[in-house]
């Protein structure tokens, strides 16, 4: 679905990092480095980004 606004575990805002992460990784950057630079230190916030399946585009067609 759509990227959650905050980390489920700690509450850090992760939504705004997702578009940047996707863009930079597609440009060929190392995901680990991108996550570090976005300030996502704890593994709870990191999993929010890396394990997210962005399916909102498919749901949207049914709306």
């Amino acid at each position: 679905m759509i990227i959650p606004v905050r980390c489920f575990t700690c509450g850090k805002v992760v939504g705004s990092s997702y578009p940047i992460y996707v863009k930079r990784v597609q440009m060929g950057e190392d995901p680990e480095k991108v996550l570090d630079e976005l300030g996502l230190e704890r593994y709870c916030c990191r999993r929010m980004i890396i394990s997210h399946a962005d399916l909102i585009g498919e749901i949207q067609l049914l709306g």
Binding site: I2, I3, V13, S16, Y18, P19, I56, Q60, G63
Partner: peptide, 26 residues
């Protein structure tokens, strides 16, 4: 995005983190 939220009145109250996706519209 969260940056599309427009404060009525004081412009300084605009959301600072303006890249949080809220919805995608078709």
């Amino acid at each position: 995005y969260s940056g599309d939220l427009v404060p009525l009145g004081n412009e300084a109250l605009k959301v600072k983190d303006d890249l949080i996706p809220i919805i995608e519209l078709g």
